[in-house]
Design a protein around this nucleic acid. Structure first.
Lengths: 342, 342
DNA sequence: GAATCATGGACGTAAATTGTCCCGGTGCTA
DNA sequence: TAGCACCGGGACAATTTACGTCCATGATTC
């Protein structure tokens, strides 16, 4: 059943919205017994006119009966409500989850796609598609957009398509090179995104983790300093979120540092920083690319991560408190609210 | 699956249409390989602009890839088409049936509701609802509408609701009283419809089947002659269709006449007349109420009947050739096309 | 019998959809 | 290699649709 809905959603993205809206109205009429248009409009907090259009529709469909005294659900409507219940329950689940997470962390927007990225590659693709859609929607004209690496971000890049609104933008990597495979490097992602959308890009050919002196000497270099300034002027960043220990291993962080991270209770990693359970940043070190203070000043910080295993990590990063938008999947979202209540 | 589609058809009929539209476009792109917007618009016979909006959407959804040379289906689009096929098949089935029957008999409109009235009362209700909707749509201002009796017509009456467009109309019975139960009398139906819609009505308190002399003497009566004149001025008739033998029995036609009907190959009954397989009228006799020549001159003749068992009868009546609109159900429609091909 | 609630009609404005035309680019063909 | 036919996409007016707002009228209740 869920399968059918997911298929239809591709052809009718607003299917769920309309269905939910009409269901809500019908359900309200059911529980209210006999009710008037204005009263109903208030309790659904919508306008009278807009409700009226829906009521006319429901009447036309024979799902409600309208008399001078008000409207009432019909036998057909009652039956429809019963059979639609399992669908809507599922439908509402995600929306409720979204709102719950959104309000708890004070985010601007939360998007949850159904499924579990850990279990199904299809869900990860969906995550990428959702990420691309949000990016396209939020971007301003001629903006600089910083992106990180990772497999989820690669999916986002894959699903971006040419849009006029992205033509004048610049894509830049948020950080320098990290010990990961080429396809998942921030540099690669930034260039892919730019090519896909017809935007421009700039790269940062510098390793991210550096000693103090190496850092200082690199910053002397004009061209490097210039690109770093450019990156730090970005007003928008799109980044993945990872589990701290997994990321440390993948990035070949040295044994000693890893041990420190573990002792400090590192849970999550995002744009090169490690976070503990409370959202505190561990292990601050001089870095090329975006610094944490740059991120704090951004207009749009968009985090993307999915999979049950990442739930806890996502909570850590959200607790840090500077995210604006979260895009995740059902499994991770459930894990998130689980950690909130415990 | 069928369940969920039926729900959606009730709750989101408009979205189902756009789903069909988008499926058609996508499917066309699939079979065309690489194709341009204008070419596609012609072969789908729609306008360029309207197709363009859909193409933009499909692109946005990543279902097609657009290049300078034209557009082509994407992997995701191909996959979607495959998985959506059963849904659309179901969705399309009825529309195709409608068009096939419509064109074969040269009707103005055919409406098919899903299901089988013989098997499920719900389908009969749907039939009534569809009938009421068509009636509401076709009616002109201050028109006289003749209606017959029968359980299907009773459902139509039940589903009529007050509409401005019907306020000034008159409902009249198409024929006199027949040996049926009160609720299913044409008189009852006409008055119910009038009460439901706020229209006016007139009744015909005369038995329909009469001997020649009784007929002549009744026509002497001024008030009866006047109402009959009134009825015959109707420009619109809504009638049920029945199986000849079933109707003969229900109307308590005498044994001898029944036998004649059987020998003549009577298959169907409509507004009091019996039809053979070819649509010829059998058993003409003087009648109060509408005569067959009145019906031939009408602006809108609307036949309503459903259920697998009535398929053959419907074909007979349609072959007579003066119907304008047919409202039936899936089971009867399938039976109809079955009789066409054999 | 007055007050309060209801529906349904009317209508102007805002917003979306659609028709129409054009431009610059691409690939095929002669 | 030049011309041609067709491509996507931009622009904009015209049209349609959606929506906010207000009012007429009828039913029900107190």
């Amino acid at each position: 059943m869920k399968e059918i809905l997911n298929i239809q959603k591709q052809l009718l993205p607003d299917l769920m919205d309309t269905m939910k809206k009409r269901y809500t109205i019908l359900h309200h009429i059911l529980v209210s017994g006999m009710v008037g248009r204005r009263t109903l409009a208030v309790s659904l907090n919508t306008t009278e006119r807009i409700l009226r259009a829906e009521v006319d529709f429901l009447k036309e469909q024979g799902l409600i009966e309208v008399e001078a005294a008000g409207m009432r659900i019909s036998a057909a409507g009652r039956q429809l409500l019963e059979s639609i219940e399992p669908i809507v329950k599922d439908l509402f689940g995600l929306t409720e989850l979204e709102e719950r997470i959104r309000s708890h962390f004070g985010l601007k927007q939360v998007v949850i796609v159904p499924g579990d990225s850990d279990a199904s590659p299809h869900t990860k693709k969906e995550l990428g598609r959702a990420g691309a859609a949000v990016l396209r929607k939020l971007v301003a004209e001629d903006e600089t957009i910083a992106v990180t690496g990772g497999s989820t971000m690669a999916e986002v890049a894959y699903h971006l398509a040419a849009t006029t609104s992205l033509k004048g933008c610049w894509f830049v990597p948020a950080r320098g090179g990290l010990g990961e495979s080429l396809e998942l490097q921030a540099n690669t992602i930034a260039s892919t995104m730019a090519k896909k959308t017809g935007a421009r890009y700039r790269l940062l050919h510098v390793p991210d983790h550096l000693g103090e002196e190496a850092y200082q000497s690199l910053m002397q270099d004009d061209s490097i300093a210039e690109i770093i300034q450019f990156i730090r002027r970005a007003r928008m960043v799109v980044h993945g979120i990872g589990e701290a220990m997994v990321m440390a291993r993948r990035r070949k962080v040295d044994r000693e540092t890893t041990e420190i991270l573990r002792q400090d209770g590192a849970l999550a990693e995002a744009f090169g920083y490690y976070f503990d359970r409370q959202g505190n940043i561990l292990h601050k070190m001089p870095t090329v690319g975006l610094r944490i203070e740059d991120i704090h000043q951004m207009d749009a910080v968009i985090g993307i991560a999915g999979g049950k295993s990442k739930g806890e990590a996502i909570v850590s990063v959200l607790r840090h408190g500077h995210e604006d938008v979260l895009i995740t999947d059902e499994a991770a979202a459930l894990e998130i609210v689980h950690h909130l209540s415990s």
